[in-house]
Computed example of a mutant assay.
Amino acid sequence: MNRTPPLSLTERRRLATQLEIARAAAELFTTHGTDATTAEAIAVRAGVALRTFYRYFRTKQDAVGPLLAVGGDRWRALLAGADPDAPLPDALRGAISEALAVPDEAAADGLRQARGLLRAAAGDPALRAVWYRVNQESEDRLRPVVAELMGAGARPLDVRLAAAAATDAIRIALETWAETDADVTGPDSPADLAVRCLRGLTGGAGGAG
């Protein structure tokens, strides 16, 4: 698989600033709600000028996009590193389980923050649209990873089905978990639900089943 060239210092700084703004937005959204949070408040919390905020994001809801995308970036990297000889369903389950695992308190806090954002999105169509857009972009980026694991003879339809099933398994699991008070680990945790969702979604999908 082709390696992505290393980012320049300027690009790394830009991404770091975006993520800092995203964390500030997520904290304010989950604490005060989207209606009571302004772009100005997010900029102040992130320690940047308002013009810097608008250089990167059109709306306050857009600001959480980079934070929501972090999990997808990590799990695609895990899948890309899976054993190429392993059956695809096993590779998908393994990568999803590891991506949603909670090895430390920082990972637990990340999931709890995602829960707060998803609860806020339930009452904010613009924030919900950002969540769906992030998932669609993740699915698009997942296709070449899945295609690589499936091999040169993989049919495009099977690749798309597998990528869609894996993305939807995580999305549905997180949305379902956010509606409950289940813990970050154990029964009905994000990892547990995602594996169950993947099993249900891939049960009849040709290349992914």
Results as ranks from 00 to 15, higher is better:
Ile170Asn: 08
Asp124Met: 06
Ser97Cys: 05
Arg160Gly: 15
Val146Pro: 02
Thr37Ala: 09
Asp168Ser: 14
Gly203Glu: 10
Arg23Gln: 14
Leu100Ala: 10
Leu88Ala: 07
Met1Thr: 12
Val146Asp: 02
Gly207Ile: 05
Asp168Trp: 12
Asp188Cys: 05
Arg128Gln: 12
His32Lys: 13
Thr180Glu: 11
Val146Leu: 04
Arg119Ala: 03
Arg55Asp: 08
Ser138Met: 05
Ala173Ile: 06
Ser138Cys: 04
His32Met: 07
Leu100Tyr: 09
Ala120Trp: 09
Pro6Ile: 05
Glu20Val: 01
Leu193Ile: 06
Pro6Lys: 01
Gln136Tyr: 08
Arg93Asp: 13
Val70Asn: 07
Leu92Asn: 08
Pro156Asn: 05
Val102Gln: 13
Glu148Asn: 06
Gln113Asn: 10
Ala107Trp: 04
Ala165Met: 09
His32Phe: 13
Leu111Lys: 14
Glu137Lys: 00
Arg133Phe: 02
Ala108Gly: 13
Arg45Gln: 15
Ala191Thr: 10
Glu175Ala: 13
Pro5Tyr: 02
Arg23Lys: 15
Leu161Glu: 12
Thr180Trp: 01
Leu161Val: 08
Cys197Trp: 11
Trp131Val: 14
Arg128Thr: 07
Ala46Thr: 03
Ala24Asn: 11
Thr202Ser: 15
Pro144Trp: 05
Gln61Ala: 15
Arg58Tyr: 00
Ala152Pro: 04
Leu79Phe: 03
Leu7Asn: 07
Pro66Lys: 09
Glu98Phe: 00
Asp104Val: 04
Leu28Val: 04
Val102Tyr: 10
Tyr56Leu: 02
Ala163Thr: 09
Thr202Gln: 08
Thr30Ser: 15
Arg143Pro: 00
Leu193Ser: 09
Leu198Trp: 09
Thr34Ser: 07
Ala129Asp: 15
Glu98Pro: 00
Ala77Pro: 02
Leu79Ile: 04
Leu149Ala: 12
Asp183Thr: 09
Leu198Asn: 11
Ala25Asn: 04
Leu15Pro: 00
Ala86Val: 03
Val159Tyr: 06
Val159Gly: 05
Asp90Asn: 08
Ala46Val: 01
Arg155Leu: 11
Leu7His: 07
Arg160Cys: 10
Pro5Ala: 08
Val48Phe: 02
Ala41Ile: 02
Ala129Gln: 12
Leu28Trp: 06
Glu20Leu: 03
Arg76Trp: 06
Asn2Asp: 11
Arg55Asn: 09
Glu40Pro: 00
Thr30Cys: 10
Ala208Ile: 03
Asp183Trp: 05
Gly186Asp: 07
Thr31Arg: 14
Glu179Leu: 14
Ala99Cys: 05
Arg115Met: 07
Ala49His: 15
Leu201Ile: 07
Pro125Ala: 02
Thr37Met: 10
Gly110Ile: 01
Thr59Lys: 01
Ala191Arg: 13
Leu100Trp: 11
Ala63Thr: 02
Asp168Tyr: 07
Asp168Pro: 00
Ala152His: 13
Val70Leu: 14
Glu137Trp: 00
Phe57Asn: 10
Leu100Ser: 06
Asp85Phe: 02
Arg171Ile: 03
Ile21Tyr: 01
Ala86Ile: 08
Thr202Gly: 05
Gly151Trp: 02
Ile170Ser: 11
Ala173Met: 03
Pro5Asp: 04
Asp90Ile: 12
